[in-house]
Design a protein around this nucleic acid. Structure first.
Length: 577
DNA sequence: GCCGTTTTCGGCCCGACTGTTTTCAGTCG
């Protein structure tokens, strides 16, 4: 069984207990589900090697839940689950994903109307049966139907890199309202998660302005599809692009507390509130209070300070140890959004890119870079017109010429010669070593045989890393979010080999890839393995993706010294093999 | 059922909005 499947059962358990009015267990199971979902190791593997004891290291999993997971993994019945499920045999996970439908409602709908799934729900709602139930009415029924409609066309979470321009645009529009003093996007977009489920926006009204006026303007924006709820301080809408957006308006004195609250993550916030409580304080979105007196909350910095913490960057706020380290004053100084000096993976019209070497170089310069490596595909990737040794030699000569030209034009940008060579099934490369040795930057990548076993894939990539010419492994796991699963790899073994062979692991910033992911970045930082942040640009407009790569690195707690292309050119080149 | 700078028992984050009632439960974040 996969981590996802186990996590799903834990989440269902949480809802089943919730339905039955059991206290505290729902939260416990939810936390266990979250812990399992964010686990990098395979839970069944963990159990096989270390038994129930090994499961205790999963956050939110204690003796009780470890025992239950053990039972499930041994293929046996999990008695409490079967019992509760028998009482209310419905598709809880799916039903609860309908907006506005929760555990208690699911229970009532099953007991009174035998609703087991979304199709049943739609049928009874359309038949007008729901409005006749006690505590339900016409409006609840309409709300459910609307929820089903959105459920049907819901596209789930969206890749942040894809929707970020729209989000920034929306932020700008709200900022332009006459009544708004300041507005900022919070939530998972501010934490720069790979994907986001909705957009949270915080606005502060001008002293003279009424919050209602801001709400009215917000709801009148052209991209609003539907209004879920509207109040003086909180409005929830659905956008035409399918995303939900919440706007909250708070007084100026609460800006820091509100921004912190709406940025999340939920777990980070809970931990902060617990910390406040232990200090005899109360934290909510309006401030940090001692009795009725606010002691902090105007700024986020002040809020953290009052809690005895260093300021924690939004990208770190996941309650994965950042609060503890912050207490000790030992937070890493994360790489900044303006810190990149180069980009080591750039494709051009020599293969599957859209623009010429010179156009890419000039666009890179405008982005603020000092060097780029041209890394077109090589011959095994025939569909891209990949280079063979001869074409690479030709391209190297062309790069010399363009570098010369840029120098005369006083463009302070250096183009490096590189390639994105293919790692073949057996770990060999599709370009000979003699030619690779002539390149400044050799990136190697898996573009085929995605379904080999974990052992085979690991061996294959390790062999590539052992090649004395391979400087960087590009997009290590090969995943494409929502399209292709990552290849199976023994990450710890890969990181060990990277350290031994001085191979750099890339953080591919192309939004669909975002590869390697944050938890692997954290492992690299710990192991002292260097990384690069590359755009994987296939067009001159793609350099904007570097922002997403930096975000990913920050979520993995990486600093400037961990990222080789944040270094000056000479120092970076010395690092390469 | 979990967890620990109130530590092996006794707590467990906090508030907005809605709909159906008329003081609050359910849902959401």
């Amino acid at each position: 069984m996969t981590n996802q499947e186990i996590a799903k059962i834990m989440r269902e358990m949480a809802m089943l207990y919730e339905m039955n009015g059991v206290l505290f267990k729902p939260r416990a199971y939810e936390r266990a589900a979250f812990g399992i979902e964010s686990l990098s190791a395979d839970i069944s593997e963990l159990y096989k090697n270390g038994g129930e004891k090994a499961l205790l290291q999963i956050s939110g999993v204690g003796k009780g839940i470890a025992f239950h997971i053990g039972t499930i993994l041994r293929g046996k019945n999990f008695p409490e689950y079967s019992k509760l499920k028998k009482k209310i045999p419905v598709d809880i996970s799916v039903l609860s994903s309908v907006e506005g439908v929760g555990p208690k409602m699911i229970k009532t709908l099953y007991q009174k109307l035998k609703v087991k799934n979304v199709a049943d729900l739609e049928r009874v709602a359309k038949a007008g049966k729901i409005r006749k139930l006690p505590h339900f009415g016409e409006k609840s029924e309409e709300k459910i139907l609307k929820g089903i409609e959105f459920f049907k066309k819901s596209c789930g979470r969206r890749i942040l890199g894809h929707v970020l321009p729209e989000i920034k645009n929306m932020e700008k529009m709200i900022l332009s309202f006459a009544e708004v003093e300041t507005a900022i996007v919070a939530g998972s977009a501010r934490r720069k998660k790979e994907t986001i489920g909705d957009i949270d926006i915080l606005a502060i009204p001008k002293a003279s302005a009424k919050p209602e006026a801001i709400m009215d303007k917000f709801m009148a924006l052209p991209f609003v599809e539907h209004i879920f709820s509207k109040g003086k301080t909180k409005t929830m809408i659905k956008l035409k692009n399918g995303l939900d957006a919440d706007l909250r308006v708070v007084p100026k004195d609460s800006y820091g507390a509100a921004l912190n609250y709406f940025t999340g993550s939920k777990d980070h916030n809970v931990k902060l509130r617990e910390l406040a409580m232990k200090k005899g304080l109360k934290l909510n979105e309006y401030g940090l209070f001692k009795g009725k007196k606010a002691v902090a909350g105007i700024t986020e910095e002040g809020l953290y300070r009052a809690l005895g913490l260093e300021y924690i960057e939004p990208e770190m706020r996941e309650n994965t140890g950042e609060i503890e380290i912050s207490k000790e004053g030992k937070l890493p100084k994360l790489i900044g959004y303006g810190d990149l000096k180069g980009d080591l993976q750039v494709q051009t019209d020599w293969t599957d890119g859209e623009d010429s070497i010179e156009m890419m170089a000039k666009a890179a310069k405008e982005t603020g870079l000092e060097y780029i490596a041209i890394t077109d595909h090589t011959k095994a990737l025939a569909m891209t017109g990949g280079s063979d040794e001869k074409k690479l030699m030709k391209q190297m000569a062309a790069i010399d010429k363009i570098n010369h030209k840029l120098k005369i034009e006083n463009y302070k940008l250096k183009i490096l010669k590189g390639a994105e060579v293919n790692i073949m099934k057996d770990g060999s490369l599709d370009i000979d070593n003699k030619t690779l040795a002539l390149l400044d930057v050799v990136g190697a990548a898996v573009h085929s045989h995605f379904t080999l076993t974990r052992e085979e894939q690991t061996k294959r990539v390790i062999r590539a890393m052992e090649n004395p010419n391979v400087d960087i492994i590009f997009h290590l796991t090969g995943r494409v979010i929502d399209k292709r699963a990552p290849i199976e790899l023994d990450i710890d073994e890969i990181i060990k080999t990277a350290k031994r062979t001085k191979t750099v692991l890339e953080i591919d910033a192309y939004p669909d890839r975002s590869d390697i992911k944050d938890e692997y970045i954290k492992k690299c930082v710990l192991a002292g393995v260097k990384m690069s942040i590359d755009s994987d640009a296939h067009s001159k407009v793609h350099f904007r993706f570097l922002e997403m790569g930096i975000a990913q690195a920050r979520r993995g707690w990486a600093c400037k010294e961990n990222i080789i292309n944040a270094w000056p050119l000479e120092k970076m080149l010395k690092m390469l093999k």
